[in-house]
Design a protein around this nucleic acid. Sequence first.
DNA 1: TAAAATATAACCGTATAAGGTTATACAAAA
DNA 2: TTTTGTATAACCTTATACGGTTATATTTTA
Lengths: 74, 74
Amino acid sequence: MKKNEFNKKLGMCICRIRLKKGLTQVDVSALLGNNPQNISRIERGLISPTLFWIFNFAKCLEIHPDEIFKELDE
Amino acid sequence: MKKNEFNKKLGMCICRIRLKKGLTQVDVSALLGNNPQNISRIERGLISPTLFWIFNFAKCLEIHPDEIFKELDE
DNA sequence: TAAAATATAACCGTATAAGGTTATACAAAA
DNA sequence: TTTTGTATAACCTTATACGGTTATATTTTA
């Protein structure tokens, strides 16, 4: 799988999880301590977040990191 | 958990998995198509690889990404 | 011993992740 | 209509991931 394709899939997973929690991009950025523009870029697949970012995201949203990954490897 | 601590834990997991497969850093870098110095930096926790890198690593070593993560969240 | 394999380290570059600011678009609600 | 909330976008800057090269240290092997 190419990097662009991977980033897009990852972004959609992030977005889906965020909406399932009823949060806005601003909400998530406040929880993580960064800016909403970055969340937007991640959800649209423009950038590929580090694993450290992913783990913080999962922790702040009170989910298991597996929830993000299990939809990515097919 | 701080970023440095996280990176060190992650690096140790990567290293343990690599050794379990009987591979050198050069072997892994050849499989992934990057240089061994980068593997060394990751294993020592100096840098935090992207999730894209992690998934490629897992695929090349024929393991589930979960194997890396399940030792990280405590 | 000498040579090769392995890992770490110090550089110097480039690519990209990420923050900050501002503007734009659009929908929902007043 | 006007206002507000939400998301996207275009910039610029800084931090960092990553490649390439070279050197060093250590272990292993011939």
